[in-house]
Design a protein around this nucleic acid. Structure first.
Length: 156
DNA sequence: GCCAACGTTGGC
DNA sequence: GCCAACGTTGGC
């Protein structure tokens, strides 16, 4: 089983929205590196952190799981959709997605600030300079470390 | 609102 | 294939 981190802007789709939806197609990913992880590496049952980006308190706030095999993102073929890609050929789709299932909320948000302060997470793509990936891998060691932070007191 | 970092586009 | 211009991301 692999571990991931998925970014979402709470103004667009928050953890509350995710919980309400239960299962949601993770559409709109339009970055090739992120696409490759989705299409070539994600498997049903993989676990992922749900991260709130571009907001007042950027933080990991919940856990979701991969609920489907990768399949072509239908929004790329919909001219009315914000993520329409006229250059994508339906016979050879450019963009893929998986369905994502709400698992649980974390006991507390783990702020980006806090993640950045931990040397154990220095290699986590999220805290690396200039990172803009919306889908990124998390190692098992990083996953476990972050879960330990969940139940630890906030660093003074 | 600012701006650094990065990806993409398009002229050549 | 190079690279400048431009657009987007996303923390602050």
């Amino acid at each position: 089983m692999a571990y991931w981190l998925l970014k979402s802007e709470p103004g667009e789709f928050s953890l509350d929205d995710m919980e309400r939806a239960g299962v949601e197609p993770w559409d709109g990913v339009r970055n090739y590196q992120a696409r490759n992880w989705i299409r070539d590496a994600m498997q049903v049952g993989d676990q992922a952190f749900f991260y709130h980006s571009n907001c007042k308190e950027p933080a990991i706030v919940g856990i979701v799981s991969v609920a489907s095999e990768p399949y072509p993102d239908p929004t790329q073929f919909d001219p009315q959709d914000k993520h329409f890609d006229p250059k994508s050929d339906p016979r050879r789709p450019r963009w893929y997605l998986v369905d994502v299932r709400f698992e649980r909320r974390l006991a507390r948000p783990i702020l980006l600030k806090e993640l950045k302060a931990r040397p154990e997470l220095a290699e986590l793509p999220l805290v690396r300079r200039g990172n803009r990936l919306s889908v990124m891998p998390v190692t098992e060691a990083q996953w476990r470390f972050i879960l330990r932070l969940e139940n630890a007191a906030t660093k003074a």
